[in-house]
Design a protein around this nucleic acid. Structure first.
Lengths: 145, 145
DNA sequence: AAAATAAAGGATATACTTGTCTTTTATTGA
DNA sequence: TCAATAAAAGACAAGTATATCCTTTATTTT
């Protein structure tokens, strides 16, 4: 994999798609989202349920229902989305898996890797879901894969 | 997982351990390496075989045999080790998995992520196996986990 | 030549991720 | 109330990473 899991890639794409629909006042079903972001329907369903449970997305059942995002949630950072799906492993631990590695006794990758980590963190924390959608709208392919 | 797979963590630790033994003119068996770097023996065996096949480590069978590293291979970068084990996925592709994402039509993470990528690459390419061993020797835990 | 050693290779097991399918629950509208 | 809709939930299947075990091959030593 790349830096994110497949779940996380789908999750990020889905969140921005839902955000876009919500901006138009539309709720969207899993099937529609899956088609638009090119992901397996049922697998995505789990991801969206998880994101709902964690308060990042919202959902309503029944006719006219579907997934949507609250205005306030647009201010959540991408880091929140990533953490909700992949957990904190991307943000923690020694690159080589050395348990004794620490700032005081750093392994040879520790400092460089720490910098990289903080840049990843910054990248994900400095962009909100709302920003992300606005920025992605600017490219003419949006979410086509 | 962190940024590297478990195989890759074990591989990096093993390579530096073998390099250390080779500096003392010793060849080392899988079992010894596995114990010292805290990894499953048979699983590590596969990894070491792979690294041998790819010319990063060397090995000899029979009594007195084991794994070692050629002087010349000490100049190989950590990037080579990572690539031998995890392939190039860490170095390629859009963070969100968008196939149409490119420098011309970048997704909102593209530029930041590109920078991060190049830092990861630089970190791994600028340190050779030999450097890595020398640096790791400086911390008093070496490879204790 | 025989025995011992150690890597190489293959078969299998387990866990986790990814993906699919079916049933259940909640909600809406007729 | 009944039918339709859509998420929630659970069971299951496939694929990949991780881990173990056993056999084979090459080498060395006796």
């Amino acid at each position: 994999m790349g830096i994110f899991s497949k779940s996380c890639e789908y999750g990020l794409r889905a969140v921005v798609y839902v955000a876009d629909a919500s901006a138009e006042g539309r709720k969207v079903g899993v099937k529609e989202v899956a088609e638009e972001i090119d992901s397996p329907v049922h697998f995505l369903a789990k991801i969206l349920q998880n994101l709902s449970k964690q308060g990042i997305l919202s959902s309503s059942k029944g006719p006219g229902g579907g997934f949507f995002i609250e205005k306030s949630a647009l201010n959540l950072s991408l880091a929140k989305v990533v953490e909700a799906i992949d957990g904190r492993s991307l943000f923690e631990g020694c690159a080589m898996g050395l348990k004794k590695c620490s700032a005081k006794k750093p392994c040879p990758l520790h400092d460089d890797f720490g910098m990289i980590r903080s840049k990843i963190t910054k990248m994900l924390e400095s962009q909100t879901i709302g920003d992300f959608r606005d920025n992605l709208l600017k490219v003419d392919y949006f979410l086509d894969t």
